[in-house]
Design a protein around this nucleic acid. Structure first.
Length: 728
DNA sequence: AGCACGCCGACT
DNA sequence: GTCGGCGTGCTC
């Protein structure tokens, strides 16, 4: 009797056995349609066997094995590793990692046009976009793109206009375009053209990686902002493309994809590059997945979900901004794409590069203890570009008007007169974070969360930044009826308004999640900044991440101190990284920049190290503290999260869980406590922390504990384990 | 997660 | 009498 073991998208941590008379060993990895309870489901065959533990009266027969696309064995191993390490049901791990389109039985037709990639013919190159009449706006934009980037695919075209695919066909019949086959043949341009000579540090980094290009190594590329990490990525990528290998590049945020994509595309114009992220339609994602799986896509660039892409010829993984929290998924399968990437590189025996100006303390510790190989780049790549001086404005002696100090306003005025760009950074969107009634001290709070509602004056609304709850801005206090409601504190909208008053002639642009949504396009904002159509930028950390603004001279930081009081032991690490990133936005060209930070604690060691741009000194200081307190990276943690309608239920569950835990050597279990965000979306939340100096022992403990936890009869409590948690 | 069964209250 | 509330239990 032939039995197949199937992974199904259900929250039960087991595989399901089915009789499949026609199954063979080679069917592992194929999809299969099976009866499950009263319905049918699509699953993945994880194993083929001759015996089963399941009694024959329960055993059903599989309906059809869909032998169209198979998951390669390495991907199955990867899923199994994730299920084991993160203690999450195997079927849900598998389905989380695959395009949703695969759950559909509809044949995965390869629509012919999706593959096509176009480039200009010699005739096409002679046509200036501006020579076309304004009636052909789409055609103009397609030509401009092609002139700048070299190639265009269907997905990019559709972003320009929904009619673009048709117009591309038209341009092809006009003889302006020719299709390029994306069949993964080695690129014509093997060594990429680099306009600027490499720095010594770049050369050293590249040749170090090059000498061990065929084996597993975790390289920590610790390069200050502007030191040219991207150039190192490009050069190492070209080495592997020349060997016919595939390269996987992970970026933290979707906003960073287009930028890096454009750089890679212009450097490797005839190489098939695809980008994978959550904004693609299910079909687009499926198509990208298939191109990767067939080995046609040579460069795969994407957010954390891209780590589960099948890549038969994988030769290198790059994780850019490796310290970024976005690599950790915060719900469902709580995986760290960076850590999974390291596993994957080891599995494939290939190098992995973790790049950052401010590495996570975990990675930094691994580098100085020799587990990772450290590559440093401490000078800026552009000649004469220097790191900007950082000054502090003591807000105890400099009073604030609308959140802004007089020295900062003077500096803004100076740079405005010099026609240089400035940026004011405040990590809080909206107008004011609190709405307060002056007569009865009522505070606007979210009905579903333990959070304050944020005033959004322009939309005349109160918003919860955790659950999205939105209500009209009240005219009077709902508690006492007094009309004296006061917005308290400052957000980007309020700073924008204040700056408009202080500098009526300046062109001010606010950049945060709200304006991105409204304008619909991050790219147009970037263009506006690059074309110097803006004098003062006001924004959140969205502005800080990875972007290069050559005309920026002044960076002002408001409200940085908030993180210094945080109970989160990683808050300082994050604040330091964030301020280093913000400071790095300026002085990237020959023209020196300047950073002004408003703070109540200018003598805090964090600010001292920041002034020196000394990541190492501060990282070592933080590591000392972590060593004494036995926090990560000197211990490994797991969090048991529970949520329920009542806090008592959540805590009761955690107490039961605690009682079930077998006391073990070098495993420390803390008491259950309410989560930082006590209530979220109407559910009360609590957790229990487990800590151990040994990752192995922690894993051993968790495996045993998890099997017991699964047997607790499920009351109204939803629970999940978070291994290596970043949020508490 | 679905989807059943099952046992109590308020309706045509 | 039965429609429907959601507690409990199972899915190979």
């Amino acid at each position: 009797m032939v039995v197949i073991r199937v992974a199904l998208d259900v929250p039960i941590d087991t595989l399901f056995d089915y009789i499949a008379p026609d199954a063979v060993l080679q069917d592992v990895g194929f999809r299969v349609r099976v009866p499950f309870g009263k319905r049918f489901m699509i699953g993945i065959i994880m194993a083929v066997s001759h015996d089963t533990q399941i009694s024959s009266d329960k055993l059903k027969q599989a309906e059809t094995i869909l032998r169209d696309i198979a998951l390669p064995p390495v991907l199955i191993d990867l899923f199994e590793f994730c299920s084991r390490y993160y203690h999450y049901p195997i079927g849900m791990v598998v389905m989380n990692g695959l395009p949703s389109r695969m759950r559909n039985v509809r044949p995965l037709a390869r629509s012919s046009h999706k593959l096509s990639l176009f480039r200009l013919t010699d005739l096409g190159r002679t046509i200036a976009p501006s020579s076309l009449s304004a009636r052909y706006k789409v055609k103009q934009r397609l030509l401009t793109w092609l002139n700048e980037v070299g190639t265009i695919n269907q997905i990019e075209a559709r972003k320009i206009s929904p009619r673009a695919p048709k117009i591309l066909q038209e341009m092809q019949t006009q003889g302006w375009l020719k299709p390029v086959s994306g069949t993964g043949e080695p690129p014509l341009e093997i060594s990429p053209f680099c306009a600027v000579p490499l720095t010594t540090e770049q050369t050293i980094a590249i040749s170090a990686i090059q000498t061990e290009i065929n084996q597993f190594n975790t390289w920590l590329l610790h390069g200050i902002t502007g030191s040219g990490k991207t150039e190192v990525y490009l050069q190492v990528t070209s080495l592997l493309l020349a060997r016919g290998k595939q390269v996987l590049i992970l970026v933290p945020e979707i906003n960073l994809t287009p930028q890096l994509e454009a750089i890679f595309r212009s450097r490797f114009p005839s190489t098939c590059l695809i980008s994978l992220h959550s904004k693609l339609t299910p079909s687009e994602r499926m198509e990208g997945w298939l191109q990767s799986q067939r080995g046609e896509a040579s460069i795969v660039l994407g957010t954390r979900l891209a780590i589960f892409t099948p890549l038969p010829k994988l030769g290198l993984i790059i994780v850019d901004e490796e310290h970024d929290q976005s690599f950790k998924q915060q719900d469902g399968l709580r995986y760290s794409a960076r850590d999974v990437a390291i596993f994957r590189a080891k599995q494939a025996n290939i190098p992995i590069i973790l790049g950052s100006a401010t590495p996570s303390l975990e990675s930094y510790h691994n580098a100085i203890t020799g587990r990772f190989r450290l590559l440093r780049m401490s000078t800026r790549a552009v000649k004469n570009a220097v790191l900007p001086p950082i000054h502090y404005i003591d807000t105890r002696t400099h009073p604030l008007t609308e959140g802004l100090s007089e020295p900062l306003l003077t500096a803004l005025d100076n740079y405005l007169n010099l026609q240089r760009q400035s940026m004011v950074f405040i990590n809080r969107r909206g107008y004011a974070p609190v709405l307060l009634c002056k007569s009865c001290a009522w505070l606007a709070s979210c009905p579903r969360c333990a959070s304050r509602l944020v005033v959004h004056l322009k939309q005349k609304a109160l918003c919860c930044h955790y659950c999205g709850h939105n209500e009209a801005l009240p005219l009077a206090c709902p508690q006492c009826g007094d009309q004296d409601l006061m917005p308290f504190g400052h957000g980007t909208q309020r700073i924008e308004t204040a700056l408009e008053r202080f500098f009526p002639n300046a062109r001010i642009l606010r950049v945060d999640r709200d304006t991105i949504r409204r304008k619909g396009d991050w790219q147009t904002i970037l263009d506006t900044i690059h074309d110097r159509k803006v004098d003062i930028l006001v924004g959140t950390q969205l502005l800080a991440k990875g972007h290069n603004f050559p005309h920026l001279s002044l960076v002002g930081v408001l409200n940085a101190d908030a993180s210094l009081y945080s109970t989160d032991f990683r808050a300082e690490e994050r604040l330091f990284a964030q301020l280093m990133q913000v400071a790095g936005r300026t002085g990237r060209t020959e023209i020196a920049g300047e950073v002004l930070i408003q703070t109540e604690f200018p003598d805090h060691p964090l600010y001292g190290a920041l002034r020196q741009h000394d990541y190492d000194a501060y990282a070592r200081l933080l590591l000392k503290e972590r060593e004494i307190t036995l926090f990560p990276p000197f211990s490994y943690q797991a969090l048991l999260n529970a949520e329920a309608p009542e806090m008592t239920m959540a805590l009761a569950f955690l107490n039961d869980a605690n009682a079930l835990a077998k006391p073990m050597n070098s495993i420390e279990i803390f008491d259950p406590v309410p989560a930082q965000m006590t209530r979220l979306k109407g559910l009360e939340r609590a957790h229990l922390l487990v800590q151990s100096p040994s990752r192995k022992r922690l894993q051993f403990f968790l495996s045993e504990w998890y099997t017991k936890l699964r047997q607790i009869p499920n009351r109204k409590v939803r629970w999940a384990l978070d291994v290596d948690p970043l949020e508490f």
